[in-house]
Design a protein around this nucleic acid. Structure first.
Lengths: 223, 223
DNA sequence: CAATGAGTGAGACTAAGTGTCATGCGGCAT
DNA sequence: ATGCCGCATGACACTTAGTCTCACTCATTG
């Protein structure tokens, strides 16, 4: 049952909040949750893992999302997939903030979180370099892009965790728009859509540009 | 004495090479090196740390390099500093490749390496966002840039470790040039530069757009 | 010569993580 | 109902990383 897992995880957070991470042993957690030490280690492989109970599930969902993305997706699929992660944490609410309190305090947990982030980045890199041609430049670009997407996610998430951000939806869109702006190739939207053949009437170009500019202006003003 | 450290580290690599990482206990290493378990843990804080004997020293050198960089350095200082890291590993030669063999085999060591990389990235991010203004966009940009620099380094290093690359000097220059191209200062802007207040004459907008579009067209043709 | 202090070794101790074995409980076919 | 089977759990032993304390040695210094 997943109920046992939740029970254990809750007990762990409870004790960590009171006694701190280091001062809480696995035995403490197990007895607080009313299970045996064996069950603890069967549910979570380690003491650290109890802090990130559904990381594997999210990773799976992200992977699934990338796998099922339309054939012309490219960077858009990745920026889309990373929102799954962000919104999962946002939906967790206070629990995510408790976790943040722990990860910013306990080095071992901070490192563990870092490793989780790297798993996503690796996923993104592979996906992107699968889309691109196999040239070394394209692979470096894929690696940089993946890193940028994760960086954007991390930034917004951290701001939200610190309550520096009230509208994570809007902020992640902005941040990912910045990623798109610096990494989108020609097949991606934004500027690519402004390319016009010579001979198109200036008035048509002007209208299209105004529409695009308005969108940007609105965003700037909002912020 | 640093000699004791080297002795221990050598012994560890020797045993890891023969028995593997997991099958080699700290006691094994200590007795192979002819020291006591106590001395081992005094020299290296943990079993994992014996694989990365001079990481702290490199981190210190990188930090020093950034601190002493000229006032107008910005991204250049960072791309310059990251070469210290790359060339250190290249200078290590076969020892670095042994380490790579371990880090690609043993998950715990892979994670440890990841954490090391994150330390550099954090250093770079702080340095870059110190240079930039304090706007959220600038900070996100700093984070992305730092990630890209580290990604470039990782890519070249990995290629060198796998003997896929004979001239790391040239490859790192190329990779960092790519970073510069996508993250170099103000000149980026593309669509950002097109933002105009309401009331600007259409003809002016049209001219600006045409210039922008020409630039894009050139890029498309080049590529 | 005596005192200090740094580096080392010995050994006890805690706690994480692994593996094994027995037990109990619910479903299922005969 | 009975016996069987699969599965989750609990109990327990064991290894090993990492911490801590104490005693010893040896070189320096007053």
């Amino acid at each position: 049952m997943a109920a046992a897992r939740d029970e254990i995880s809750d007990a762990a957070f409870r004790l960590f909040g009171i006694q701190g991470y280091a001062a809480t042993s696995v035995d403490d957690i197990a007895s607080e949750a009313g299970v045996s030490r064996s069950t603890f280690f069967r549910s979570f492989g380690s003491k650290e893992a109890v802090i990130f109970p559904d990381h594997d599930e999210i990773l799976g969902r992200v992977e699934e999302r990338l796998r099922s993305s339309p054939a012309d997706a490219g960077l858009a699929a990745v920026t889309d997939a990373v929102k799954i992660v962000l919104f999962h944490y946002v939906a967790e609410g206070e629990r995510a903030r408790e976790r943040y309190g722990l990860t910013s305090t306990v080095p071992a947990l901070r490192e563990r979180e870092l490793v989780s982030g790297a798993r996503y980045q690796r996923l993104f890199r592979r996906y992107l370099s699968h889309w691109a041609d196999a040239s070394p430049e394209a692979e470096l670009r894929a690696e940089m892009t993946a890193a940028a997407v994760v960086a954007a996610h991390n930034r917004v998430l951290r701001r939200w965790l610190r309550r520096e951000c009230t509208d994570p939806q809007r902020e992640i869109e902005q941040a990912l728009a910045a990623v798109h702006r610096t990494f989108a190739d020609e097949s991606d939207a934004s500027i690519g859509m402004l390319v016009v053949p010579a001979g198109v009437p200036a008035s048509a170009v002007e209208k299209a540009v105004k529409r695009a500019l308005e969108g940007i202006a609105v965003r700037n003003l909002d912020q």
